[in-house]
Nucleic acid binder design. Sequence first.
DNA 1: GTGAAAGCGCTAACAC
DNA 2: GTGTTAGCGCTTTCAC
Lengths: 352, 352
Amino acid sequence: MQKGNENKPITIYDIAKEAGVSPATVSRVITNRANVSNDKREKVLELVRKYNFQPNVLAQGLANAGTKTIGIMTADVRNPFYAAMFVACEQAARERGYTVTLCNSMDVKNQEIQLLGKMRDQRVDAIIQMGGSVDDLASDEEYVEAVNQIAGDVPFVTTGKLDGTGCYMVRIDDRKCIDLLMNHLLDLNHQRIALLGGSMDVVSTYAKYQRYKQILRENMLEFDQRLVSFDKLYNYEAGYSEIERLLEEKIPFSAVIAVNDQSATGIIRCLQDHGYRIPEDISVVSQDNTMFSEILMPKLTSVDYGYEEFGRLLVDTVIALLEGKNVERLQMVTPTLVVRESSGYCTGKSIV
Amino acid sequence: MQKGNENKPITIYDIAKEAGVSPATVSRVITNRANVSNDKREKVLELVRKYNFQPNVLAQGLANAGTKTIGIMTADVRNPFYAAMFVACEQAARERGYTVTLCNSMDVKNQEIQLLGKMRDQRVDAIIQMGGSVDDLASDEEYVEAVNQIAGDVPFVTTGKLDGTGCYMVRIDDRKCIDLLMNHLLDLNHQRIALLGGSMDVVSTYAKYQRYKQILRENMLEFDQRLVSFDKLYNYEAGYSEIERLLEEKIPFSAVIAVNDQSATGIIRCLQDHGYRIPEDISVVSQDNTMFSEILMPKLTSVDYGYEEFGRLLVDTVIALLEGKNVERLQMVTPTLVVRESSGYCTGKSIV
DNA sequence: GTGAAAGCGCTAACAC
DNA sequence: GTGTTAGCGCTTTCAC
């Protein structure tokens, strides 16, 4: 299968000697960066195939030719959203001849900065960051500085934003997410709709909140501050405690939009713990459409981002940048709605 | 924060010049591989700190000093088990001054072989593989060859096994998993216990099956072939369809051991779809103790592996190997049982 | 204990 | 077009 790995790995010198050309010529054909006569090119290519030759990436990197690797930083791959995104990026990169390398910041800013440094030291060609400081509504100054300094000459693309850094953004259309969800719920006759989980310090959450209010207004529906979360996390517990708050304070509502699938899970559990049926009594819709959506009881109506295309777009953007092409600073990913079991028609005016 | 990154990155030559020593000496102190007089060492160290100097890993790698990176191959990080393991390894590696790099084989053998090659080309110092061909009961010949050839001089450690490769194994004690689960269930008066999901072509699953039969025998309980899965997958669908089979064929049982949390999810959903209550009617216990266990309704009784220590052991093993230490070929991780809501006392002889 | 110098494998001027 | 040569930044003999 693999040949020529018997002893020391093959180098361009070996190829050059056997082909009767200079190492430079070999380099030229494998990098495809200069003209080489057809016969020499063929000869070299033949040997490359024969020995299954792969240029040493370390040497290539050292010689300033780039490492063909993209550094990806997520907040935490254990979150299915990031896992899905990472795999999508990995696949896309693979197809384009790039390698990816992953690190998790665990949402700790110091760690983020350090990892940025690590990536630079590894000479990644570009960096993609998902989650962490790039989600901040107000970009952290120190982090901005770090990115400017460390990733200064390396393309930096993110699913969030980082004011003052010339980073490239590939973002989910947050407004559209809410449009999808609200229209679905309004069609089902819901009027008292909660918006639960998450924090207004996060760009996307804040944008969604704004859109939510706007739609309410457009539909002459009352906006009730108590129905929305302002400074919560994005996990199970946040969902659980927030819905419990509504229940305990007896704030009426018939539907809830969860900030993501994990919080939706907590919301549903709490509702069930309190004896409510979903969607008969209360509808719950969510965002992210991770594996949880399929697996929960009831299955979740959730907004999907098209992970595969999302990842591909991220990687394509990085590569376009690397190739010196002109790229839009901000690109949008359009979400779609996947309707499942957790949302239904609202019969009563509002429950609770 | 970070200093000295203004222009071109600092090199050992810069340090050497400023310290009034030779580059070799600088190298000696940063690698800590030879004796250097105390005053020079101090001087160098001071400058290293001053400039926050980090040696170029590419150059180090090229000079055959290792890259300080561990390649990790999982079947699919979107599986919470692998995600948890990866993060655990990443943390452990970080603490020991190593970097990790992740790739997903998607359980495709050709891909696995290719990725092995990619890792070699990246000059990883060692490889950790979790899932994929290392889970095969009968190791695939072609894959064995690939590992021997490609990863020949690179320490190779896995959570599975690979006969004929001198790989190192850090494995979960499969028998113990079943002991924990069976004892728990037997204590709860269950007699008809199903073993669902997974395939007997997988080492761990097979070992568990053997142990299951043995415990049945020791307790004078009947073994019913129809109660176990032999060639299924490890996902939601597998769980769902297997339990449905039992239901449709009216095979009596009062408890089921799921091969993992994902299949447990399918099992529970199917049971609920058919109107059974858990654990009142049927107990479901699982393995992996991933986030699903906490989040499901009911919460899952599941076997935990101690991800953090597991990851640490994996990484420690790798590093011990790299340091030329003597390491046991096979090390065991001891699982523990986390009892939650999905298992309860069996009142009837057996349900269905 | 310490420096000089060769070499790791590749790329990119620079000649020819 | 193609070869020669000089790095890229580090480690490691080999002398001293």
